[in-house]
Design a binder for these strands. Structure first.
Length: 919
RNA sequence: GGGCGGUUAGCUCAGUUGGUUAGAGCGCCUGCCUUACAAGCAGGAGGUCGCAGGUUCGAGUCCUGCACUGCCCACCA
């Protein structure tokens, strides 16, 4: 670091340089673990961003938290792996490319499947790395050597393997069921990809004429267009109103079809008219009812939600046009008897917002029950621990009510389902590799299932597939289960629960768990415990904008992390996110806060500049040698003066506090503790206190100056290590400078993380310094009240009953004089407390000797206010002290505290009164 | 329809298992270009902790109800 540093910290160039350095030096590549390596392991998976993705604030929060935890572990000596990769994100990516095609006025069908997929690969090669490049800029200390893409050949093979095994176990089946169908995307989606919304709508009542009578039966529906596919009307068996109609038929209006009246539980007498139309092809409940009663299924729409030929005269109409026409016709023909305002529940595609159509179609499903059972057990037994803990219950509730998972998608981009259909005999063949002939009829005319797998089905396997499953790889042995997962609750069910926990517990248990040669199978208790994808899940909050609004493109309130970074620096942005990561609430990201942390970076920068301006005197280089290895306290720090003992003690306590905070994922506490220490103690007091020694010239003080320089560098070096996980860039920069560009390690990230050394904690020094701070602050207060000009030095009188305090003040007279701008200190024989213009605590009083009169009116008001407060407080205190129950029940410390405070208050009240009288 | 959060200074948020005087940053006011830092230094104003009850010697903290607000889940026509 050159000595003519800019006065203001400029993060841009520095951060870019280190980001590149970390990647190029492969600093964070986890070594291939040796069998004998007994270091504790720490591994975690980066939730893979979509290849199509651009970094947003949520990513940055997520990655900042992970990076803090990862760097912290690495510095504490863990063998650490943070595994990055990207997700092919079948539906999202396909949409992206289709949108691009649309600008060329083309559809994917115009290209054909192969050409379209090639186009996506092209696109992926071109734009796919963007988000990872952005991650590098954040300083994410991932292992770039192990980076994967979910369609890499080894991962694809693993996913096919998993599919085949599940199929062979009878857990994957194919069937025609009602699924959520997005007419715009043209594919089935799972229930978790559907968002429910409420919207004002209508409840229509339609009467169906009963065959062979003049009667009508009136049904209620919010979706009249589906009546074209009705195959029954249901009433409740117990419903007296309809008992006489059991077994009869109705004539379906518009379609002129006779359909039966059935009795079924779906019809609830209290709702609407108590009679419900049954459309098995367009409603999940009706589908079930249809199966119970053997009803025909009449599908009246196509895959784009246009009416098909089954809809008779309505064929070709879009579903909403069809609704209007049906209603019109019903109205004209007198079948529509009521239209009531009604709040309808709309199901929308999570991706594109199109209203989902329940649609009967042939799909692949995963039978989740046996997998869910394990997924419940591992959480109940505490093998996976949720943080915050309330997610455990949310998870369990959900997992207990889980439905079978539709895993096929009618998309082109993705992991193709490894199933083939024999064009001759219709046999379905599920195989790891493309079969050459039908297993049943030996025909060679086989066609692969056109569908691809739900992305979450493959990404749910990443904890084990990304480590090498189904092979017994060294990585799998060394790093599975991973230690931690940090993610947002938005993908808790989609990815964490239904994906990773369910699939990992299944495939990392016997018989699927691969065993290395000579490895003993797990005992029964360990089977479950070791099958989990991660031992802990930390769920982080959502990042909102400064007005607590969800960031969204449509609202235009999306904050681009890269822009924030360019303005304030990565370190400041990371620090903002860390300091706002308190549990329970969302994060309202306010750049004014980031501005404050940029100032913090600047403060550190300038403290470093100051240090380097003085450290010359004893030569740079070697001062801090060895201390970077000290994981306890600061090794080599040799206290000479009181403030040395104090700052060493404070450093240790802060290190202890940070450790506690990070263990509990209290990033905010950790950040605050370091901030307060660095700025409020190291800069505001320690540096100010040692300045005279640091700047001292001449032989007499030379030794002391050298010692304080050495201590300052050691302190600084250790403080940088403490801060490094949160602010990696500036700490790296200054750390290298401390070693004059020749550090003992390639990076501060490889140095030891400071831990508390209780031997370096010094309560006496902390207490003494706090008295001196009180003295100085009281004098500063007086100066401000008396409006003493900044430059004028003033003599003070101090009274202290305790001789130890007098000694302390005498010994540190120079410091007081400098920091409070005092030119002499005289001790008074008697208390000064009663004098107007004096201040103090129970331990001492100070009085300024200054001719300027205080403003009596202002002073009187201030004193009155104080007096009020004191009197209120003392009356509270005395009431408590007179209360026998309080004395009997409250802890001794509390009673003692209040008693002491009451004594203090009595003095304060007395002196305040006499000051008032004096005025 | 179930469930979960939030409500503390003008703004954004901390506040451990109930315990002496409820904190920080930003903003605001006053004074300082004090040789590391004006992105700074020193000092200051500003809060009946959403409302109403209850438990307790003692409640921002625990309990009940209410209000406002955000979110998750849910096949009710």
């Amino acid at each position: 670091m050159p000595h003519d540093l800019p006065k203001a910290y400029e993060p841009g160039a520095i951060e870019a340089r280190w980001a590149e350095f970390w990647v190029n030096e492969k600093l964070f590549s986890a070594p291939n673990p040796e069998p004998g390596d007994s270091r504790p392991r720490f591994s975690l998976l980066l939730p893979p961003p979509n290849v199509t993705g651009r970094l947003h604030m949520g990513h940055m929060l997520n990655q900042t938290q992970m990076d803090i935890i990862v760097r912290w572990h690495r510095m504490r000596g863990f063998l650490t792996l943070w595994l990055p990769g990207t997700d092919h994100a079948s539906i999202a990516t396909q949409m992206m490319v289709e949108r691009q095609l649309a600008t060329e006025k083309k559809r994917r069908q115009d290209l054909g499947r192969d050409a379209f997929i090639e186009r996506v690969w092209c696109w992926k090669r071109h734009y796919g790395g963007a988000i990872l490049e952005q991650m590098k800029r954040l300083g994410a200390s991932v292992d770039w050597d192990r980076e994967y893409f979910t369609l890499d050949e080894n991962l694809s093979r693993a996913v096919r393997e998993a599919f085949v095994r599940l199929y062979e176990e009878g857990l994957i089946y194919r069937g025609k069921y009602i699924v959520n169908w997005c007419p715009r995307c043209g594919t089935a989606i799972s229930d978790l990809e559907v968002k429910h919304e409420e919207a004002p709508g209508k409840l229509y009542e339609i009467r169906y004429p009963v065959v062979g009578s003049d009667e009508f039966i009136t049904v209620a529906t919010t979706r009249p267009e589906t009546m074209l596919g009705d195959t029954a009307v249901a009433v409740n068996e117990k419903d007296e109103r309809y008992k006489h109609l059991h077994g009869k038929k109705v004539r379906l209006p518009l379609m002129n079809r006779e359909i039966p009246i059935i009795t079924d539980e779906v019809a609830q007498p209290e709702f609407g008219t108590g009679a419900v139309k049954i459309t098995p092809s367009h409603d999940a409940n009706d589908f079930e009812a249809g199966l119970r009663h053997n009803l025909p299924q009449i599908d009246v729409m196509d895959e784009r939600a246009k009416m098909n030929s089954n809809a008779g005269p309505y064929a070709g109409l879009d579903r909403s046009e069809a609704r209007d026409r049906v209603l019109n016709d019903l109205r004209e023909q007198g079948f529509l008897v009521a239209e009531k305002d009604y709040t309808v529940a709309l199901a929308k595609c999570d991706r594109c917002g199109t209203v989902v159509e329940p649609r009967l179609s042939l799909q692949w499903f995963l039978k989740v029950e046996p997998l869910a059972k394990r997924a419940i057990e591992v959480v109940e037994k505490g093998y996976i621990h949720f943080k915050p803990e309330n997610y455990k219950q949310i998870y369990l509730n959900w997992m207990c009510n889980i439905h079978d998972w539709c895993i096929s998608r009618q998309l082109w981009w993705g992991e193709r389902i490894p199933a083939w259909c024999c064009l001759d005999c219709g046999e379905t063949i599920v195989a790891r590799d493309s079969p050459s002939q039908c297993t049943k009829c030996s025909s060679g005319r086989l066609e692969q299932d056109p569908d691809v797998l739900d992305t979450w089905f493959s990404s749910g396997q990443l904890p084990f597939t990304a480590l090498g499953w189904p092979e017994a790889t060294a990585d799998l042995a060394a790093f599975y289960p991973t230690s931690l997962l940090i993610t947002g609750f938005d993908i808790l069910f989609l990815w964490v629960a239904r994906g990773m926990i369910m699939l990992s517990c299944w495939f990392m248990s016997p018989p699927h768990r691969p065993l290395a040669e000579g490895e003993k199978p797990l005992d029964s208790e360990a089977v479950l415990r070791e099958s989990v994808p991660f031992r802990e899940v930390y769920i982080h909050a959502l990042v909102r904008d400064a007005d607590r609004q969800k960031m969204s493109k449509t609202k235009g309130n999306v904050l681009d992390p890269i822009e924030v970074i360019e303005k304030y620096g990565t370190d400041a942005t990371r620090f903002t996110l860390a300091s706002m990561s308190s549990p329970g609430t969302d994060i309202a990201f306010n750049p004014s806060r980031t501005e404050g942390y940029r100032a913090f970076a600047n403060k550190i920068w300038n403290a470093a500049r100051f240090m380097f301006m003085n450290v010359d005197r004893i030569g740079s280089g070697g001062v801090a040698n060895g201390s970077f290895k000290s994981s306890k306290g600061i090794s080599g720090f040799a206290p000479v003066a009181l403030e040395d003992r104090w700052i060493l003690s404070r450093f240790n306590r802060v290190a202890g506090g940070v450790d506690t905070a990070l263990r509990a994922y209290r990033f905010d506490d950790a950040a605050r503790a370091i901030y307060d220490f660095f700025w409020g103690e190291l800069c505001d007091w320690y540096i100010e206190l040692i300045k005279p020694r640091l700047l001292a010239e001449g032989e007499a003080d030379g030794k002391s100056a050298r010692a304080s320089c050495a201590n300052l560098v050691l302190l600084f070096e250790a403080s940088l290590r403490l801060l490094h996980p949160i602010m990696p860039f500036i700490t790296e920069e200054i750390w290298h400078a401390i070693y004059d560009g020749e550090p003992p390690l390639r990076s501060i990230a490889l140095a030891a993380y400071p831990q508390i050394d209780s031997g370096q904690v010094d309560g006496v020094a902390e207490n003494d310094i706090s008295i001196l701070q009180d003295v100085i602050i009281n004098i500063r207060n007086l100066r401000a009240e008396l409006k003493v000009e900044q430059k004028v030095k003033v003599p003070v009188q101090i009274y202290a009953a305790d001789s130890a305090i007098r000694t302390l003040i005498q010994q540190n007279q120079g410091a007081i004089e400098r920091l409070a701008n005092v030119d002499s200190i005289a001790f008074s024989e008697k208390s000064l407390a009663n004098l107007a213009g004096a201040r103090g605590t129970t331990r001492f009083d100070v009085l300024l000797i200054y001719e300027k009169k205080i403003d009596a009116a202002v002073e009187r008001e201030r004193l009155r206010k104080d007096l009020d407060r004191y009197e209120k407080e003392i009356s509270n205190g005395q009431r408590q002290l007179q209360n026998e129950q309080f004395l009997a029940k409250a802890p001794k410390q509390v009673v003692e505290g209040i008693r002491k405070r009451a004594e203090e208050l009595e003095i304060l009240i007395r002196t305040t009164r006499s000051k008032l009288d004096g005025l």
